[in-house]
Amino acid sequence: MQIFVKTLTGKTITLEVEPSDTIENVKAKIQDKEGIPPDQQRLIFNGKQLEDGRTLSDYNIQKDSTLHLVLR
């Protein structure tokens, strides 16, 4: 499925993911596309910070959902 990740600069990254993917996996995909190390990434969905060990389906993230990427 496709999800979107919006950065603070207003750029939107499109990712191909599975609901069973962990947040860690998603961060690795963002690193592949953008070169941002996962330990600098914080992903936010519906105002909640997403934890590495959880999956997209844990957070009820579905296709065409938009996550927000904050760098630390």
Rank of each mutant, 00 (worst) to 15 (best):
T7F: 09
I30S: 03
L71I: 06
I44P: 00
T22M: 09
P37I: 15
D58L: 06
T9A: 11
E18I: 12
K29P: 00
G47Y: 04
E18T: 04
F4R: 02
Y59F: 09
L15F: 12
K6D: 13
D32N: 09
A28K: 10
T14D: 10
E51V: 07
Y59T: 02
L43M: 06
I44N: 15
E24I: 12
I44F: 14
K6I: 10
Q49E: 13
Q62H: 12
D32W: 12
K48V: 03
V17K: 00
F4L: 02
L15R: 00
T14R: 12
S20E: 08
K11W: 08
L71F: 03
F45P: 00
E24L: 10
T55Y: 13
K29N: 08
K63S: 12
Q41V: 04
N46V: 13
L50I: 05
I3F: 01
I61Q: 01
K63A: 08
V5I: 09
G35Q: 06
T14P: 09
Y59R: 01
K6H: 10
L15H: 01
Q40T: 04
M1S: 03
V17M: 08
K29H: 11
V17G: 10
D58S: 02
E18R: 11
K11M: 15
K27W: 08
R42F: 12
K27T: 02
D39F: 12
D58N: 06
E51I: 09
I61A: 02
L71V: 07
V70R: 02
I30L: 08
N46I: 06
I44L: 03
E51N: 03
I3M: 11
H68Q: 11
S57Q: 06
T55I: 04
L43E: 00
Q49N: 03
T9S: 06
T9Q: 04
I30V: 12
P19L: 10
V26S: 02
N46K: 04
N46S: 11
R42A: 14
Q31S: 08
F4M: 03
D21K: 07
K48E: 12
K48S: 08
D21A: 13
G10M: 05
I13H: 08
I3R: 00
E34W: 04
I44T: 08
T22E: 14
I3T: 01
T66L: 04
K11P: 09
G53H: 05
Q41M: 07
N46Q: 14
T14I: 13
I23W: 01
R72V: 13
N46D: 05
P19E: 08
K33M: 11
P37M: 13
K48A: 15
Q62V: 12
I13E: 04
I36K: 04
I30Q: 00
P38R: 09
N60H: 10
P38Y: 14
N60F: 15
I13M: 09
I30E: 00
F4I: 14
L8V: 08
N46P: 01
M1A: 11
D21Q: 04
K11N: 10
V70K: 03
D64K: 02
F45Q: 06
E24G: 07
F4P: 02
I13V: 13
R42V: 08
V5S: 01
P38V: 14
T7H: 06
I23T: 13
K33H: 13
F4W: 14
K63L: 12
I13F: 15
Q2P: 15
V70M: 04
H68N: 05
I44A: 12
V5M: 05
L43R: 00
K27D: 00
E51W: 03
S20N: 14
R72K: 07
S65H: 10
Q62R: 04
I61P: 01
K29G: 07
L69N: 01
G47N: 08
F4S: 05
L69R: 01
P38A: 10
R54L: 14
L15G: 00
K33V: 11
I44H: 12
L15W: 01
E16A: 08
I13Q: 03
E16Y: 09
S65A: 07
P38H: 15
T7K: 08
P38W: 06
T7M: 15
I23E: 01
L67D: 01
D21M: 08
G47Q: 13
D64T: 03
K48L: 15
G47R: 04
